[in-house]
């Protein structure tokens, strides 16, 4: 219990455990870790609501069908795992603007959130292009 409620684990130890988790996952479920395909499936899911015909007509959404699969649950599980870990370690903290950002660019939320949003568009376009 004491280890689980500690706020900080060595990145080497946690990383090595994550490596073991990956090996176990491949052995048990045949699944390697990934996240960005889930964003394609989810984007298709959302776009379907507004423009179902458009989604059906795009080759990329036909290839990567909007659905909930192993990876989708893996990514969602990541949120729960982080919530559990931060609660156990009394490390959960409502943080609208990251400390490092605040020291450099100030506490303005709109500025930070807009940057994160626009950066997210660029990041995901690059990730999908690179195949990750």
């Amino acid at each position: 219990m004491s280890v689980l409620s500690r706020t900080s684990w060595s990145p080497y130890v946690a990383g090595a455990l994550a490596g073991m988790l990956l090996v176990l996952s491949v052995l048990v479920s045949g699944k390697y870790f990934g996240a960005s395909t889930t964003f394609v499936r989810s984007a298709g899911y959302i776009e379907q609501v507004f423009a179902p015909d458009r989604v059906k007509s795009l080759e990329y959404f036909v290839k990567t069908t909007p659905k909930i699969d192993w990876q989708w649950m893996f990514v969602f599980g990541g949120l729960l795992g982080s919530l559990i870990a931060s609660r156990m370690g009394r490390d959960f903290k409502s943080t609208p603007v990251p400390p490092l950002w605040e020291t450099r660019f100030g506490p303005n939320r709109i500025k930070r959130w807009t940057t994160a949003f626009l950066g997210g568009i660029v990041l995901m376009f690059g990730a999908r292009l690179a195949g990750g």
Partner: peptide, 22 residues
């Protein structure tokens, strides 16, 4: 397979949070 994904994700998220990488 969905349950495996969820459990694997929870463990991975737990490790990432403890290592401060998120």
């Amino acid at each position: 397979i969905l349950l495996y994904g969820l459990v694997t994700g929870i463990l991975f998220g737990f490790l990432m949070q403890k290592a401060h990488v998120i």
